[in-house]
Simulated scan of single mutants.
Amino acid sequence: MKIFKRALSAELMSSSSAIFLIILGIVVAQRAGNIVRQVSKGILPNDAIGTILTFSLVKLMPMMLSLAIFLAVLLTLTRWHRDSEMVIWMNAGLSLRQWVVPILRFIFPIVLIISLLSLFVMPWATEKAEGYREQLKKRDELSSISPGAFKESSSGERIYFIESFDKLGYEVKNIFVQSRQHGKTGIITANRGSRYKAENGDNFLVLHNGRRYEVIPNTLDVSTTEFERYDIRIETKESAPEPGTAQGKTTLGLMQDASLSDQAELHWRFAIPISTIVMVLLAIPLSFVDPRAGRSLNIMFAILIFIVYNNILSIFQAWITQGKISSWVGLWPVHLCFILLGWYLYHRRKHLKPLIPDLFKRKPKAAA
């Protein structure tokens, strides 16, 4: 019995670690690509990539851990079925129920971590991410400029182009600024410039050794001025603070608030660790491999159940927010349905029946 538990724990540990790293790499690539796309369009500044990516990963960490241990249990037991190791252990006297306790003992610390992340760390990361985005909205227009890209000011009166910044973002090179004031179009070019903040808090872009061209539309009048120094006041964005969302509130704050959106968010936070336990228990009967049905059929069916489970939880959460379902009922009907599904699958495996009944099997004809 000790050999069985030791072998199971060792393989589950290695499988869950490898699967989690794979999922983490996929999520990082997907989220980083999305953030870089926003930076290239000028929606986000360059220095916000790392911070926003970190907050996104922290928010997705509970779901990534949940999926990782579900796939680890499923793939480990599937391999044991495929390599006939499961047959050996069952012939040694192990029943299907005796697999439950070692697996639950293995996932207990992981589910505890998922609970802490879901109830405390995830709302903290959401709140910090919302606050950071508010700070980005209030930053001056020069901070959102990407090197080598044209950027229009929030008022629409200026267009900036800067070829490159220094590491700190205070020194700029090869600047182009187009502005519209008093019915005239001005174009300013300079080889280098710098930023500074005045005593009253205003930000300025200082251009050195450049030229200013002033053009009156629909005329041929063009005036050229060379300068050694030219100061441009940088506009700052003023935006009203947006109200905090339910995702950014603490769990204690959700318990004290009676709004439907807060109650729905509270049920969702508790649903993540609960669904993890349910899906891991479902992975035990789902790991059975029928040699005649192919090696990957059970894995595809298990992943389909995982996706359906989480999508139905999201639907019920939306219904709670809309008032279609009482907050006292919450997401428990979804958990109960999948617990009953697990009981059904255990019952069929216990009696060595296929997990999905063959409804289209032809009955043998009676002898004449």
Rank of each mutant, 00 (worst) to 15 (best):
F4T: 04
M13R: 14
F20S: 02
I22S: 13
I26H: 07
V27H: 04
A29M: 12
N34V: 14
V39L: 08
G42N: 03
P45S: 09
N46W: 07
L53C: 09
F55C: 04
M63H: 08
L67K: 05
L75I: 10
T78S: 13
R82N: 11
G93I: 07
F108R: 09
F108P: 06
L116V: 15
V121P: 04
W124A: 10
E127T: 09
G131K: 15
Y132T: 09
L136D: 03
E141P: 04
S144R: 05
I145E: 00
S146H: 07
G148Q: 05
Y160L: 04
S164M: 08
V172E: 00
N174F: 00
S179P: 02
K184V: 08
T185G: 01
T189V: 13
Y196R: 11
T219N: 10
L220R: 15
T225P: 06
E228A: 13
Y230T: 05
T251W: 02
A258L: 11
A264H: 00
I274E: 01
I274M: 09
L282R: 01
D290G: 09
G294R: 09
S296T: 15
L297V: 11
L297H: 05
A302F: 08
N310F: 11
L313C: 06
Q322W: 07
S326H: 12
G330K: 03
L340Y: 11
R348N: 09
I356A: 10
P357A: 07
